[in-house]
Amino acid sequence: MQTIGAPGLILLVILALLLFGPNKLPELGRAVGRTFREFKNGARDMMADDDPAARRSERSDVIESKSDERRNLE
């Protein structure tokens, strides 16, 4: 299977700039990041044991990351 090389990556960035414009790209990047984070958290929850202490720890990580996001937006 072939990977996307540097020229392909540059072409994708140029195409994204043309389609979405420079003002929308940061917003789009944040949305993609949130989607990956939610997917990862959902997968972790599905794989987690029934250990309540582990779940509490994971929830506190999510709460901390959300509060960090809010601070960054202010």
Rank of each mutant, 00 (worst) to 15 (best):
R56Y: 08
S57K: 15
M46S: 07
S67L: 15
I63E: 14
I4A: 14
S57L: 13
K66Y: 12
R34K: 10
M46T: 08
D51R: 06
R44E: 13
G42W: 02
V13T: 15
E64P: 00
L73A: 09
K40Y: 04
P52I: 11
K40N: 03
N41L: 09
R37T: 05
A6K: 12
E74F: 11
E64G: 01
R44D: 12
R71C: 01
R55I: 07
A16S: 06
D68M: 10
G8Q: 04
Q2D: 12
R30K: 07
D61I: 03
S67A: 14
R70T: 11
L28M: 09
E69Q: 10
P52F: 06
M47F: 11
R55S: 10
G33M: 02
I63Q: 11
R55M: 10
V62E: 13
R44K: 09
G5C: 02
A54P: 01
R56D: 15
A53R: 12
D51Q: 07
K40W: 08
P7F: 03
A53L: 14
L12M: 14
R59V: 06
K40L: 09
R34I: 13
M47Q: 05
G29W: 05
G21C: 02
L19K: 07
V62D: 11
E38Q: 08
V62F: 03
A53T: 12
R37S: 04
A43C: 03
L15P: 00
R59A: 15
A54S: 12
K40S: 09
T35E: 09
F20T: 02
S67H: 09
K66V: 15
S67N: 12
E74D: 14
D49H: 08
V62M: 07
I10E: 14
P26M: 00
D49L: 13
E38S: 03
D51F: 06
D45W: 01
S57P: 00
D50M: 08
L73K: 08
Q2G: 03
F36P: 00
S57Q: 14
L18C: 09
I10V: 15
A43V: 14
S67T: 14
S65D: 13
A43S: 07
S60P: 00
Q2S: 10
R30N: 04
D68F: 04
A54F: 05
G5I: 02
A54C: 03
G21R: 01
A6P: 12
D49I: 03
D61G: 05
I63Y: 05
L11C: 06
A16L: 13
M46F: 12
T35W: 12
P22Y: 04
P22W: 06
L18Y: 04
N23G: 06
T3A: 00
I63C: 00
L9F: 07
L12S: 10
I4Y: 05
G5P: 04
L15K: 12
L25G: 02
M46G: 14
K24M: 00
R59E: 14
I63L: 13
K66W: 08
T3G: 00
L28W: 02
G42V: 02
P22T: 01
R71T: 13
I14K: 13
G33S: 05
G8R: 03
D49S: 15
R30W: 01
D61Y: 01
V13Y: 09
T35K: 05
T3Q: 00
I4R: 10
E74P: 07
A16N: 04
S57Y: 09
F39K: 07
R71E: 15
G21S: 02
L19T: 10
M46K: 11
L9N: 06
N41V: 04
K66R: 15
R34C: 04
M47R: 08
